[in-house]
Simulated scan of single mutants.
Amino acid sequence: MSTFRVRRRIEIDAGHRIMTHGSKCRNLHGHRYVVEVECEASHLHPSGEQTDMVVDFGFLKDEMMRLIDAPCDHGFIAASADAELLALFAPVGGGEAWVQVLRDTVAAQGAALTTDTRMGTKLYVVPFQPTAECLAKHWFEVLVAPVRKRSDATARLVAVRVWETPNCMAEYAPA
């Protein structure tokens, strides 16, 4: 069976740390992430705005910018379990109550975005260590429904790839 595949990339700059890492990734650092999504379809749109397309590249960009760039670019991505790091971001007087609100939001929604931080910086909190592997899975999960909807159910999201460096990439593609 033949399939058509399309890919779209964006780049974001974000900081993170892997609190359990035994080496330098335990330190605060940042990356110029490249995030690529891959979609496939068994047929192209027969008519309408997306005629002869799997999904419009502009639609993919819109969703990637809304769901990845907007909450994460020029911000910090943190694990909800990283108490030491969250304490650094907590606003003066916020303390444990502020951290608990973030953790409750992560538990209910899968992530939490705030700029109510000590320095007014963007903080995106996730329920996992912010490794490239886990970010690829997370961004797959937040994109799968919007891609289906924007393509009128023609396209299927098949993979998300996250490069931390030009030489290091992780991919999530469910079986």
Rank of each mutant, 00 (worst) to 15 (best):
S2T: 10
V6Y: 10
R9I: 08
D13F: 06
H16N: 05
H16T: 05
T20D: 11
T20L: 08
T20I: 08
T20W: 07
G22E: 07
K24M: 11
K24V: 14
R26Y: 07
R26V: 12
N27Q: 13
L28V: 15
H29D: 14
H31F: 12
R32N: 10
R32D: 10
R32L: 09
V34S: 09
A41T: 00
H43R: 15
P46E: 14
Q50T: 09
T51M: 11
D56C: 08
F57P: 09
F57L: 13
F59S: 11
L60I: 08
D62R: 14
D62T: 13
M64H: 01
M64N: 03
L67G: 01
I68Y: 04
A70C: 02
P71S: 03
C72N: 12
D73K: 00
G75L: 07
I77Q: 04
A79P: 03
A79Q: 07
D82P: 03
L85Q: 06
L86R: 03
L86C: 02
A87S: 10
A90I: 07
A90E: 01
A90D: 00
P91W: 03
P91K: 04
V92R: 12
G95C: 04
E96V: 14
W98T: 00
V99C: 08
V99Q: 10
V99N: 07
V99P: 04
Q100P: 01
V101D: 11
V101N: 02
V101W: 00
L102M: 08
D104K: 08
V106P: 13
Q109S: 11
L113K: 03
T115E: 10
M119N: 10
M119P: 01
M119W: 13
K122L: 13
Y124D: 06
F128A: 14
W139G: 02
L143M: 09
P146K: 11
V147Y: 03
V147D: 01
R148Y: 11
K149F: 05
S151Q: 02
D152Q: 12
A153W: 10
T154H: 15
T154E: 05
V158F: 00
A159T: 06
V160K: 03
R161E: 13
T165D: 05
P166S: 04
Y172A: 07
A173P: 04
